[in-house]
């Protein structure tokens, strides 16, 4: 499998993501945002975490105008798999490839810690190796992860099984670190080829570093 990891000025999780996919035995290429096209034969595009353009104006507000994004948008619209992690999730919202928007965390703090998540749906490529109701432990690191969507939008996400991960405690009870509507940590689009989540699975791939729960998630895209 060939993975294209898009790098913007201010991105800082591209090497972790590349390391994770290399560990999974896949070819993972870093693609600079000024490129106009994706490498041939790409099977997955990752928009990694970080602070693209310094989070100026709003998180991810400016990245959507980078030259590569036109190619990413048409790749997503033609059914290609796109995974946005943290700042990458914010980009997918800003681009309109996923519904909703991000606000400042409810407590206005930048939160960086391990957090438990519950798998809400696995009828998708990303979480197909996990079980519904399974609890995973994955780091979060964000200041604007307070997911907002209106009531109609939330109902739509629920009825289409688009909520993929929610925040919880170790026993699976709801625990909300940032104020997100419906404790939402990650969603996908209706066609289930575009995924966004605030937690960082690429930071949870070595047990010696606390958790390898992220590996099974990232492996979902590996054929």
């Amino acid at each position: 499998m060939k993975v294209a990891i898009i790098v913007f000025p201010g991105t800082n999780c591209e090497i972790d993501t590349q390391y994770a996919y290399t560990k999974l035995g896949q070819e993972a290429l870093l693609v600079w945002h000024k490129e106009k096209s994706l490498p041939d034969g790409v099977d997955l595009v990752v928009l990694p975490g970080g602070f693209s353009y310094g989070d100026y104006l709003r998180s991810a507000a400016i990245a959507k105008f980078s030259p590569i994004m036109e190619a990413v948008t048409s790749y997503a619209k033609s059914g290609g798999y796109v995974l946005g992690i943290c700042n990458g999730f914010q980009m997918l919202l800003e681009m309109g490839l996923l519904p909703g928007a991000m606000k400042r965390n409810l407590n206005v703090h930048f939160i960086s810690k391990y957090h438990h998540l519950k798998v809400e749906s696995n009828d998708n490529q990303f979480l197909r190796h996990l079980k519904v109701g399974q609890i995973v432990n994955i780091p979060i690191a964000h200041g604007e992860g307070n997911y907002f969507i209106d009531e109609d939008g939330l109902q739509e996400l629920k009825s289409n099984n688009q909520i993929i991960l929610t925040y919880c405690d170790a026993s699976g009870s709801a625990l909300n670190p940032n104020g997100s509507v419906g404790n939402i940590a990650g969603i996908c689009n209706i066609n289930k080829n575009v995924f966004g989540l605030m937690p960082h699975p690429e930071r949870a791939i070595e047990t010696v570093l606390g958790s390898n729960d992220g590996l099974a998630m990232l492996e979902g895209f590996v054929a």
């Binding site: 606000k103 400042r104 965390n105 409810l106 407590n107 206005v108 307070n146 907002f148 104020g179």
Partner: peptide, 14 residues
């Protein structure tokens, strides 16, 4: 500005 009805975490903290 955030829309009316959308909770403003910064405003609340201030």
């Amino acid at each position: 500005q955030l829309k009316q009805g959308v909770l403003d975490p910064q405003g609340k903290a201030v």
